[in-house]
Amino acid sequence: MRTSLNNIAQTEAYLLKRANPANSLLFEAKILLDRDLQTRVSQQQQVYTLVQQYGRKQVKAEIEAVHQQLFNQPEHLSFRQKIARLFK
């Protein structure tokens, strides 16, 4: 793997706490001494946050699609009626 990708792998191990304590400590020291690394680490952290938000948004949409299916398709009529009776 090229160096930049190896750096990403190292940063990942650190951020997702998969590095052993010694490596993690060493990496922390590197961050303190290197402003560029500091920036890259924080940007990579943002990537994981964005991926979480992306995944969550998609799953929410999938759940809503299932809701629409259950409350609109003819084969789920009895389920729908059962729920409707609760809110009369």
Binding site: I8, A9, E12, Q44, V47
Partner: peptide, 8 residues
């Protein structure tokens, strides 16, 4: 890792 780089 390439994708992480791209999104970053």
């Amino acid at each position: 890792y390439k994708c992480i780089e791209k999104v970053r």
